[in-house]
Design a protein around this nucleic acid. Structure first.
Lengths: 147, 147
DNA sequence: TCATATTGGTTGACAACATCAACTAGTGAA
DNA sequence: TTCACTAGTTGATGTTGTCAACCAATATGA
């Protein structure tokens, strides 16, 4: 049967490609199961802002590697949903500092629950040491790709 | 600076998300640099069919986890570009067996070159043992996600 | 063997994400 | 003050993912 044939094509590209896809699918499902009115990018940016209060759109674009146009749009949607606030940067009137408001903070807790569930599934039966190894090697690959 | 702050948020989700994104970007660039008139999905499916001649759309959908609608469309495009041929499965008149034709075979060599370059970049400075460890752990995660 | 469920594939509609270029407004340096 | 540059916005357009309806062939089972 084909599926058994394919199992041992353990090319690293296949692993990355599949892992990315399956991870995205799982996350999306978790978010939906928790009745969060968000899509993947919303979640990503909320987490970003949560972790780095008063960051700017530009910084997010830089770190994630996404196009700034896309960041702008997602931020606008998040603001439209009253989850974040934008305040002009006093030191640079072009920039705006992003932060979660109360509603956004509230959502974060539920987002964490959903994501923790995915993480739990993902890492089932994989010990801490292997997890760290994986992350460490993954980061080296990332450094390579980013030049 | 923010970028240095963010470097040590080595959450596994961040790594997966970023790795997926950067990998996609690199692959896309490589494909473009090699002047291949293809997008990511084209490449993926061509490789699939190359590795598993006479597979069906359904099998590809199953293995990759993608929606069959999407598979259908990409296959139609590949056929439109005269890279693959579809022949009805003699044992099941609903199904069609997919295979690369000469032109498709010809492209495969150049696709391999492009992808090998990405792979070389990706794995620079990472020894075989670590590569295998990464793949092995990645596969375990995949099994977890796929239930 | 005839109704029924299932499967392989197709199509349409649409949401999510990416990309590129043009533009405004503020900043910084010569 | 001029000029290059940066933060952010907008529009257009392409790619990928998702869902539901549908057709034809097949398998099931009463």
């Amino acid at each position: 049967m084909l599926s058994t044939n394919m199992k041992n094509e353990t090319d690293i590209r296949q692993v990355l490609w599949q892992l990315a896809f399956q991870f995205k699918v799982s996350t999306k499902r978790a978010v939906r199961d928790y009745d969060l009115p968000l899509n993947g990018m919303h979640v990503r940016l909320l987490q970003m802002i949560h972790r780095h209060p008063d960051c700017t759109a530009q910084q997010i674009a830089g770190v994630t590697g996404r196009d700034k146009a896309q960041i702008t749009r997602v931020i606008k949607e998040l603001e439209g949903m009253a989850l974040i606030t934008r305040t002009p940067d006093p030191e640079d009137r072009r920039a705006q500092l992003l932060s979660l408001n109360d509603k956004g903070q509230g959502l974060m807790a539920r987002i964490q629950d959903a994501e923790d569930e995915v993480k739990k599934t993902l890492l089932k039966g994989i010990n801490k040491k292997d997890q760290n190894t994986f992350i460490e090697i993954g980061n080296r690959m990332l450094d390579n790709l980013r030049d």
